[in-house]
């Protein structure tokens, strides 16, 4: 690894066997890493919208038109899908790392293990609801 000169010849380190696509676990992980690309694309899309808004009603109308294009729709759907996946997985991590503490002396760790899929779904639905509320849809 970061060792300087080895005292004897070594064969170089080999990557974990079958990485990155041989096992479902690895594929899930790669998918998780891939969410960053789509979330980036989604973010750029939103920024373009803000810019269009600043350029006046015409540009905004064009922007809305573009959003209706089938390719953009497909892309938006993918962005949405990856966001959902990211959120689920993040919550999955979150329940493991959040540790309950009461008072100055830390108590025993209470990983949010009780937070099952139902709980995560509830958090997720609440989040969507708040967004919709803020967006004035409801």
């Amino acid at each position: 690894m970061s060792e300087n000169a080895s005292p004897t010849p070594v064969a170089p380190a080999r990557p974990p066997s079958g990485f990155p696509l041989a096992h479902a676990r690895y594929r899930n992980y790669v998918l998780f890493a891939l969410t960053s690309v789509f979330m980036f694309v989604g973010g750029v899309g939103l920024l373009l919208g803000v810019r269009a808004l600043g350029q006046g009603p015409e540009a905004w109308a064009q922007y809305l038109d573009a959003l209706g294009h089938p390719a953009v729709l497909a892309l938006s759907l993918a962005v949405f899908g990856f966001s959902v996946y990211f959120t689920l997985r993040w919550m999955w991590i979150g329940r493991k790392i959040m540790v309950g503490r009461v008072g100055p002396v830390p108590g025993p760790p209470i990983p949010m293990a009780g937070l099952g899929l139902g709980g995560i779904a509830l958090c997720f639905a609440t989040g969507i609801g708040v967004l919709l509320l803020l967006g004035g849809v409801l």
């Binding site: 970061s2 080895s6 070594v10 170089p12 380190a13 080999r14």
Partner: peptide, 15 residues
């Protein structure tokens, strides 16, 4: 995996 191989099944562990 992820370790240089010293010999056969023995890997470099100092790091």
């Amino acid at each position: 995996s992820n370790f240089p191989i010293v010999r056969d099944l023995v890997v470099e562990l100092d790091d």
